[in-house]
């Protein structure tokens, strides 16, 4: 299973960050051609991302490109750059309906055929940034077999909801987070929590990471490299959790060797969800 705890935003027009962001070892790097790039630099940023995607340093890391909306003059050109450059994933911002994903899917297929990439090779993810997007989250998450994740985006959503972010347990985001997360889980894809914008407030960031982790998000979208380490540390299992996971897997393997259908550990039955959780724990521990 691909780990997606951290998706680090890299402005598409920032040559220095495009050249170095891999060293922070996020699970995914997202080259941004949308909000981070001014309209007059879109053309240059698109070429920069197209070239960076082909650089060997990004061969071993999942690359994502956030394109501009397909309704803008930039969207389709961004898509050409992303797919021809070899991006693993295209992230569609401000997704409000499954039709938007299906339209994107059609264009992706067209470009894959044109440039010789296997059809279906490029994956998709949607950012949910409005009340309409939240309400349609299940339909969006299941709109294409290319979908691998949905991401909650807080800033635009809260404006749409006529409210603002609070510092505690964030009731204003609770429904949207829960809805997006349920949609992702129902579609068997991953879910990313919102960006935390104040890069100087590690305490606030960690408070938000705790909420996201407890709810069940795979991880968060990140806007500063230092947040990668903090997030990975927060998602790392404790030694007790790792020890228990190892014992669960050892018990399951022993039962398999002995031909036993029922597995138990310390008098408790180990069913498939427990085994799956143990495997995920070890995967997180290994990546921490």
């Amino acid at each position: 299973m691909k780990l997606r705890r951290s998706m680090l935003f890299v402005p598409g027009d920032n040559a220095a960050m495009l050249s170095t962001s891999f060293i922070y070892k996020p699970d995914s790097i997202m080259f941004d051609l949308e909000d981070a790039v001014s309209p007059r630099e879109k053309d240059s940023a698109r070429l920069l991302v197209f070239q960076a995607l082909q650089h060997p340093v990004y061969r071993d890391i999942e690359t994502v490109v956030r394109i501009n909306s397909l309704s803008t003059e930039f969207g389709r050109k961004d898509l050409e750059a992303a797919i021809r450059g070899g991006a693993n994933v295209v992230r569609l911002p401000k997704t409000e309906s499954p039709e938007a994903i299906r339209e994107l899917d059609t264009h992706v297929t067209r470009i894959e055929i044109a440039c010789g990439r296997p059809v279906g090779d490029t994956k998709l993810m949607a950012a949910i940034e409005s009340a309409s997007g939240v309400v349609n989250a299940v339909a969006i998450a299941t709109a294409s077999p290319r979908m691998i994740a949905i991401a909650m985006a807080g800033f635009d959503y809260l404006v749409d909801m006529h409210t603002r972010r609070s510092d505690d347990w964030q009731p204003e985001l609770f429904y949207a987070r829960a809805a997006v997360l349920h949609a992702a889980r129902a579609a068997h894809i991953d879910a990313f929590d919102v960006v935390y914008g104040n890069v100087n407030d590690d305490e606030g960031f960690m408070r938000e990471v705790k909420i996201a982790k407890q709810l069940g998000f795979n991880g968060k979208s990140l806007i500063h490299p230092k947040q990668v380490y903090l997030l990975h540390r927060a998602y790392a299992p404790t030694q007790d959790e790792v020890d228990h996971a190892r014992r669960v897997i050892a018990a399951a393997e022993e039962a398999l060797r002995n031909g036993l259908g029922v597995v138990s550990l310390d008098g408790k039955m180990i069913d498939p969800p427990v085994l799956k959780e143990a495997e995920m724990t070890l995967q997180l521990a290994e990546a921490a």
Partner: peptide
């Protein structure tokens, strides 16, 4: 101190801007 990929991208961008061309032939840009 730019990487090769950055040099390529910036030369391409300046050239395309200088040519006044809106249409890109992506096959030429790899």
């Amino acid at each position: 101190g730019a990487l090769d990929c950055v040099i390529r991208a910036r030369v391409q961008a300046a050239t395309l801007r200088g040519s006044g061309s809106e249409d890109l032939d992506w096959r030429r840009l790899s």
